[in-house]
Simulated assay, not measured.
Amino acid sequence: MASGGDDLVKYITEKVVVYMEDPKASRERRKAEKQPWSEKWFGMLPLGWSIWRSNWARNSKK
């Protein structure tokens, strides 16, 4: 029976091999397609807050 350490080494090795065999352009495209962490973790809240703040700043200048 394989121990947990052997499984971990096998998993990490598989991930590294897949990463190394993947063309660089593909990795860069996938990285560019990622959404910002603020939207990932907080959804539309940062966007709504920034719109509210910009409208508030614009209205206060009048």
Rank of each mutant, 00 (worst) to 15 (best):
M1Y: 02
M1S: 08
A2H: 08
A2G: 10
A2V: 11
S3E: 07
G5C: 02
G5R: 03
L8E: 07
V9T: 06
K10L: 09
K10I: 09
K10N: 04
K10F: 06
Y11M: 13
Y11S: 14
T13F: 06
T13Y: 10
E14R: 07
E14A: 13
K15D: 02
K15Y: 04
V16S: 11
V17H: 05
V17E: 02
V17P: 00
Y19F: 14
M20I: 15
M20G: 12
M20A: 13
D22P: 00
D22N: 09
D22R: 14
P23I: 00
P23Y: 03
P23C: 09
P23R: 09
K24N: 05
A25P: 01
S26W: 05
S26N: 12
R27Y: 03
E28G: 05
R29N: 05
R30N: 03
K31F: 14
A32W: 06
A32K: 14
E33Y: 07
E33F: 01
K34Q: 11
K34W: 00
K34D: 05
K34M: 11
P36N: 07
W37V: 08
W37I: 07
E39Q: 07
K40W: 02
K40E: 09
K40F: 09
W41C: 03
W41Q: 07
W41V: 15
F42A: 00
F42T: 03
M44Y: 14
L45D: 06
L45G: 05
L45P: 01
L45Q: 03
L45I: 14
P46T: 05
L47M: 11
W49Y: 15
W49N: 01
W49S: 08
S50P: 01
I51R: 00
I51G: 02
I51Q: 00
W52L: 14
R53Y: 13
S54L: 13
S54D: 01
N55P: 02
N55I: 11
N55A: 09
A57L: 09
A57C: 06
A57W: 15
A57M: 15
R58L: 07
S60D: 12
S60R: 11
K61A: 14
